[in-house]
């Protein structure tokens, strides 16, 4: 039986975290799905079929590990534009992601109004996000404050890049959350680049997590290439938040093996050696190795899984490409509420 000859350390890792074998396979599957949707979007972009994308590559472990540590039917996400892995764990499907990629009417994020990768869906408890980095961070604090006012227990996770940590809104939101000990998890996905500007021109302190002490809550640095490390940190932060222990800042250090977006050319500011190094740190490869060492995956089952996911992405792409655009004049809709609540005047809870 698979798993009989487990390396002791390997077994300890995910089971000690309370994760079943099936759960770690689910984590891997979500990571691979995010990667394959992303890769397909690059192909579609280079083929001239979609004008833009901003990539999740290299961030999948951090995103999936973090979202998996939350309660997807009770907690909230205020993510940023790389967080495809999080959106998947909170219920967004390949088809929905592709509808957003092609900006079709059925896209649940925005009905084709926003660029791809701008996640948001009330059904999935993901607040709509803009392109302005760190704008979503105070929203997370506002949602957490609402829970405190209404006596509802949930955690809000907001994520952002290392570049966004320079924004004043990050500071203002963290400061407020610290004062009121709100159940917010600030997750910085530090890929060490803000488009072309490297970490050392963005941040003077040795880590972004170190700033947490200035806000009066814990800050930790984790290996963002390992979903279990991120899961562990977010789980601990979420448990603390649920006990009334307030916010946590988690800095997940990741690599960005691709340009910032489909419009960027990272060869103008990074050496090819550095990019190759980033590609070697691929979290999907390392987690695959972990699962194989744990006896949960072998070449055949992995290939099967990848093929099934490829098929899912094929179907999603075909569906989305053929799906209807919104009517041109739908550009006039949803500016204000109409009488009778026609603009989605549904309240999530109240």
């Amino acid at each position: 039986m698979m798993g009989d000859n487990l390396d002791l350390k390997t077994e300890i890792k995910h089971r000690l975290l309370g994760l079943s074998d099936q759960q770690v396979l689910d984590i891997y599957r979500a990571m691979v799905l995010a990667r394959k949707v992303d890769e397909r979007m690059w192909l579609l972009n280079r083929a001239g079929k979609i004008p833009f994308l901003v990539s999740c590559q290299g961030h999948e472990a951090a995103q999936v590990g973090a979202a998996y540590a939350l309660n997807q039917s009770n907690d909230f996400l205020c993510p940023y534009y790389r967080d495809m892995g999080m959106a998947i764990v909170f219920g967004m499907t390949a088809k929905e992601l592709m509808l957003a990629a092609f900006a079709k009417a059925e896209d649940p994020n925005s009905g084709g109004r926003q660029m791809p990768c701008h996640y948001g869906s009330k059904q999935n408890r993901i607040l709509s996000t803009s392109s302005v980095v760190a704008s979503q961070v105070p929203h997370a604090v506002g949602i957490a404050l609402s829970g405190s006012i209404m006596g509802e227990a949930f955690v809000v996770l907001t994520s952002f890049g290392d570049g966004a940590s320079s924004q004043g809104e990050f500071h203002e939101a963290a400061n407020f959350a610290g004062i009121h000990r709100l159940p917010v998890i600030f997750l910085c996905e530090n890929n060490k680049y803000a488009i072309s500007v490297p970490y050392n021109k963005q941040v003077a302190s040795e880590s972004i997590a170190a700033r947490a002490s200035g806000y009066g809550f814990p800050g930790v640095v984790v290996d963002g290439n390992n979903p279990l490390d991120v899961y562990e940190a977010v789980k601990e932060a979420a448990d603390r938040a649920r006990r009334g222990g307030g916010p946590t800042l988690i800095e997940a250090v990741v690599d960005r093996p691709v340009p910032h977006s489909s419009d960027d050319d990272d060869r103008t500011y990074r050496t090819s050696e550095e990019i190759e190094e980033a590609k070697k740190n691929d979290p999907i490869l390392s987690f695959s190795r972990y699962l194989k060492e744990a006896g949960l995956l072998d070449e055949r089952t992995e290939l099967d899984m990848h093929e099934r996911i490829e098929h899912e992405v094929d179907e999603a792409t075909e569906y989305a490409e053929r799906a209807e655009d919104a009517a041109p004049e739908d550009a006039l809709k949803h500016v204000y509420a109409l009488a009778g609540g026609e603009s989605g005047d549904r309240h999530l809870i109240y």
């Binding site: 205020c78 709509s128 929203h139 604090v141 506002g142 949602i143 939101a173």
Partner: peptide, 17 residues
């Protein structure tokens, strides 16, 4: 912290308050 005041109001109102 005016950006936080407005941004927190955005989050809280989106939530339903």
């Amino acid at each position: 912290s005016e950006a936080a005041i407005a941004g927190i109001a955005v989050g809280a109102s989106a939530f339903g308050l």
